[in-house]
Design a protein around this nucleic acid. Sequence first.
RNA 1: GGGGAGAUGGCCGAGCGGUCAAUGGCAGCAGACUGUAAAUCUGCCGGCGUAUGCCUACGGAGGUUCGAAUCCUUCUCUCCCCA
Length: 401
Amino acid sequence: MSFNSIDKQLELIKRGVEEIIPEKEMLTKLERSKNNNKPLIIKLGCDPSRPDLHIGHGVVLRKMRHFQDLGHQAILVIGDFTAMIGDPSGRNKTRPNLTLEETKANAESFVEQAKVILDVDSLKIVYNADWLNTMSFSDVIELASKYTVARMLQRDDFTKRYQSEIPISLHEFLYPLAQGMDSVELHADVELGGTDQKFNLLVGRDLQREYGQEPQCIITMPLLEGTDGVEKMSKSYGNHIGLLDSPEDKYGKIMSINDDMIVKYFRLAVDADEIKLAEIERKLSDGKTNPRDIKRELAKALVELYHDEETALNAEQHFNQVVVNKDIPNEIDEYILEENLLLVDVIADAGLTKSKGEARRLIKQNAVKLDGKTCIDINRTLTPGDEIVIKVGKRRFLKVK
RNA sequence: GGGGAGAUGGCCGAGCGGUCAAUGGCAGCAGACUGUAAAUCUGCCGGCGUAUGCCUACGGAGGUUCGAAUCCUUCUCUCCCCA
């Protein structure tokens, strides 16, 4: 195969990235790859301890896809071994240490989800337990001797945690080293990661040098804030848009992001190029365009990216119907009544609320409608045979028969 | 090894014998409004009950007390200072 021109490759590679370190070496590697007609080895590590992927992960996965599209060799490193150590970066809390079996299962689900973005046919998947698990204690000690505590403490989250007196376990120091060994093992040319991974990625460079290899370049991607616009996107904050969320949910969740986040989402979540971004910024500041309409465009683009155009149109239509026109959607879950039941019981039992208490509260707050009419009667009973549509809040529906 | 401080609801963080299901902030949910599931404002925000009420909960286990998140003992974990 033949590679695109360096300039063309760089244009795509640089899109949306936070940093390329060092850019000069990136260029050298690209040139050599083109001259020798040999793909670069692009490494991305993933943490199988949290198997739910969201569009925040999508940012870096898309960058990986860019490299695939340019003809390079993408390698996904499943951190099944490191997951047993746990990586607390950024979350100030040690993660549970999982068993190998658990991480294997999670890894499979990870790949299943990543398929939405990556070209799985050309993707190489490796498990780092394959080489890390065979290291002896003395190997580990030797590895650890290559790094100093002071350098470790330079890592941003270690510094912060150390200063705020939050515990750092000794084994956490081994995580960056283990990740660095992955790069050594794979002879990685480039490693991708979020900005929070910068330190770990740099360790990979150092270790490759120690082991006599040419150091990898690192590419960091900005972290995408979640739908709250504050915290980084994460399932544990509940501010995520899942890769496996329904198209309607993806569309709706995008519509709920803060207006200030629109440009960032265009850049990171849907890969908009500079021309497009300029257009968006112009529209947002000209005072004539309603930000809502730009956000709709974003929502549609996102659904289209992860599904297809028709699905995006359906999601848009669903939004118009449910949110704008306050109508009921076409498809609603059904609930078959066997006997007379309290409305409150039905709502809770069907999972529209977490508890009966919550259901009762919502009724009191005028948030429950029966066939479009607000119901304020907490004692309302439903009888089998009455076909009725329950609406709770703005977007929870149930058809009762 | 010695000394000191601490562990509170999804998170942060008050409370330090009764009035504590526990101030406040964030997140979440709802209502109003709107340009949208933005922003803003208001309300809700452990479970069961229409409710006075009951149950579960302030790291674990005991104890003191009419009564404990609050006091004592002990265990587990964490941080700081000294060696």
